[in-house]
Amino acid sequence: MDYRQFRAFVAVFEERNITAAAQRLHLSQPALSGSIRLLEEALGTALFVRKARGVEVTDDARALYPQLRRMVAEADGLAQRFRKRDERERLTIGVEEDVARSTVQHLAATARACVPDLQLHLLAQCEGDARLASEELRCEDELFLPLLSERYVLALPAPSLVPGNVTDTAQDAAMDWIVCPTHASHQRLLPLYGSRGDSPAALAGNFSLALDLVAAGVGSAIVPESLAQEVPGVQTQPLEVELKRRIGLCYNVQALGNGALARLRDGVLGTGAKPSF
């Protein structure tokens, strides 16, 4: 006995007609009749009595119907569940370093809003159909889809908050800088360090590591606000000169062959919204 025989039985029982049941299952009449015959042989009983116009069901068929109807429904539901999963649109996005968790959450919420049937796969750093990164990390052959903008702030150890905005005097007199000389943003931030930037208290490979040093009381750093907000033991102050960075998706034009990425792009561009922290 197998699933095809069960489906054939349920269809004939409900239709009371071999021709109608065969059409319902998109089978030939001989194929359907063969399935019923095999099921009857396996059970050792007749299930239907053939008449000139349709069929009559036997008592054994009436007893069997509820069980086989439930089994067919469960099997169909299981198949539909996995087919639906396979039909989801897939999008793989690499998340570069120095992207805050709140930014990743913003991307995920935006993606699900634009592509409700999306299966999103997040990987670390330079992977996938697109990369979530700051605009500074966009390669020459990549397009950039901005998702949000955020400002840079002064991050200080919580017990050593410097009053007021950052000025040249405050920088020269009170700042032990933690700098990220290999970071793509370094040239933009360099003028803000003042004379003490020539002899920093510590060097870091990225903003996240710089914030760990700030929290440890080593010094102060200029970092994106979203990252600083997620590190315990760090307080922030605005900079005197407003400086921002844009976070978004970096991708090659060929990647738009992925329908999910194309729908996400169209959805973001359609809203015209450029939220910021």
Rank of each mutant, 00 (worst) to 15 (best):
R24T: 07
I93A: 14
A109M: 06
Y152H: 08
D168R: 10
L25R: 04
R188E: 13
A52R: 15
E15R: 07
G219T: 07
Y65H: 05
A228F: 05
T110S: 07
L148D: 00
R81F: 03
H186C: 09
Q80W: 08
L39M: 09
Q171R: 13
R265F: 04
D198C: 14
V179C: 08
L213I: 05
A273P: 00
A216T: 03
A173S: 09
L123H: 14
A31V: 13
L118Q: 09
V153C: 04
A113W: 00
G248M: 04
L256K: 00
A204L: 14
T103I: 04
F277D: 11
L256N: 01
A273N: 01
V179E: 14
L213N: 13
L132M: 06
T271H: 01
R101P: 08
P159L: 05
S185M: 10
E74N: 02
G194F: 00
D76F: 02
S102L: 09
C180H: 10
A113R: 00
H26T: 02
E135F: 03
K244A: 15
F277H: 08
L143I: 05
P30V: 04
A61L: 02
T45S: 13
R131M: 02
R101V: 09
Y3K: 03
E142G: 15
V10A: 01
L143K: 03
P232D: 04
E225R: 12
E136Y: 13
R70I: 03
Q80L: 12
W177N: 14
Y193M: 06
A20I: 02
Q229D: 12
G257S: 13
V179K: 08
D98I: 08
F82N: 07
D141S: 09
G77F: 01
N17G: 02
Q237Y: 01
Q67C: 15
D212F: 05
V72I: 02
V241F: 14
V57N: 04
A170G: 15
L264S: 10
V268R: 01
Q23V: 10
Y152A: 11
T182A: 14
F9D: 07
L38I: 08
L137F: 00
R69V: 08
A42H: 09
A173Y: 05
R85T: 11
V12W: 15
G272N: 00
L39D: 03
G77E: 03
L256S: 06
A173H: 03
R138Y: 02
L122N: 11
L25W: 08
L156V: 10
S226P: 06
A215H: 13
V166E: 12
E230A: 03
C250A: 12
D59L: 09
A184M: 07
L47I: 01
E89F: 09
A73N: 00
D60C: 07
R7V: 13
E136D: 10
D98E: 10
L132A: 08
E225M: 05
A130Q: 02
L269S: 12
A8E: 01
S276M: 13
S134G: 12
T19Q: 12
A21W: 10
L227H: 00
L213S: 14
E242G: 11
G259E: 10
S149K: 14
A130S: 00
P157I: 02
E140Q: 11
C180G: 04
H106K: 08
D168K: 09
D129F: 01
A170H: 11
Q67L: 14
L32N: 03
T19R: 15
A22P: 11
N17A: 05
L39P: 04
A204S: 13
